[in-house]
Nucleic acid binder design. Structure first.
Lengths: 136, 136, 136, 136
DNA sequence: GTGGTCTAGACCACG
DNA sequence: GTGGTCTAGACCACA
């Protein structure tokens, strides 16, 4: 059975820079346990071809991830997930997510939605189980 | 009694472009009923002086708002809120806010926060009454 | 029987400056014989109130018309159509109209309409008898 | 064989704003099939140097075109013609041109030209093959 | 007084 | 290399 790589997809025309999307995807994959310490990320060339994007973009994302201590880059080997990555990612992801949630709540209130509306929307979102970073 | 204009303030060094902040502020002011159809926005010069920014930046924001049909602008007269603006802004603001809330909730779940955590965070955000677009 | 003034109307939100619209309206009214030498134009105050526009705008239009020798302005009397106005207006109007027609034809061809299409459109426009400067 | 870019030229001292001229030129080039979906427009810097105008002026035109959904613009990549652009441009161009032709015809009639005169002028304009948006 | 347009040139973000 | 944003300040058109 062939190695089954985690697959990513990015929105090339969206408002979020492609390299940021890659960084987020990798971080969420680590936080979710889909990428574990020692696993290798797709090579720069492979990922740039898969996503139809510029190799420099992937390189920049990987470099940033290395600066965050989430991956190690080694010549001839590739880019591997670091041992401390899961812990860092989980903390990071939760802090970011919490902040976004607070911001979004405030935005809803400001736009005239009632507290009850907000709670209802959140409840439905929780129940639907949607996950923007899920990758099949 | 002097005319009491709506006051705006922008974060000049933030990640969001100043002209976008102005657009958002105006939209939220309209959605919140602080600016009503027929009201004139602060003149380009006035706002640029108040916010200590370049007139062109304000001009760009006002131009965009006109393209969104939220204001009418007439040379030598000023920029006035359009009749359909409140409807457009309210719909827009609520739809956007709701979407952000759903996304943020999903992000929280994906990052490992429990449903109870999420509800608690939302509850606190509602109680704190924070409003990113409020202007004293 | 009360004096029945020629009535004008302008499009305050259109792309054409209000004072230009007034000038055109007056010229066409003269060319069409609705205003004759010696007739007085509506006073600045009257017209500005009727059209809900700034008196300065009317003043500017009347001043331009005077520079074109189409009207005479006399204190205590008003603005009256000059003797040579009909001749000037007719020439002017025809020259302008002809130029516009040539431009519009070229534009049609450039946009891909066939010569036959163009002739057909013109024929229909002629038959319909529409007149953009007609005032009831 | 070197890539042969579409060439534009603008009238820098005319009554029409330069950025509007650029927008029109691009729209007509698309309508005429000289620019096709996926083609990249000249870069902002390139066009500003070619036309001897300020880059900001080109930027404004490109920004407007993007709002009209005629182009996509991506940082670091360039500005490309959208898939739906030809359809939008053709419809737009023909509708506008037709409207102008009708208006101009009515104007001619109103100014006293005979139907025969009008048809003659149109015929000559067609035969002359003049095209205000043609670029060699 | 109002907004509209343009220039010259800076710095940033992205690929 | 690309486009995005902003500044500083000019001149014009309009009401």
């Amino acid at each position: 059975m062939a190695k089954e790589d985690v697959q990513f997809c990015v929105n090339i025309d969206g408002p979020i820079a492609v390299y940021v999307q890659i960084e987020n995807l990798v971080q969420f994959a680590i936080a979710a346990g889909k990428l574990n310490p020692g696993d290798t990320l797709p090579s720069v060339r492979e990922m740039s071809e898969t996503l139809k994007i510029n190799p420099n973009t992937v390189t920049k994302a990987y470099r940033d991830l290395e600066l965050m201590k989430l991956v190690h880059t080694r010549r001839g080997v590739g880019v591997t997930v670091s041992a401390e990555a899961p812990k860092l990612c989980r903390e990071n992801a939760r802090a970011m997510a919490k902040e976004h949630l607070i911001d979004a709540t405030a935005e809803c209130i400001a736009s005239g939605l009632s507290a009850a509306d907000v709670r209802k929307i959140v409840g439905q979102a929780i129940d639907s189980g949607a996950n923007p970073y899920q990758v099949p």
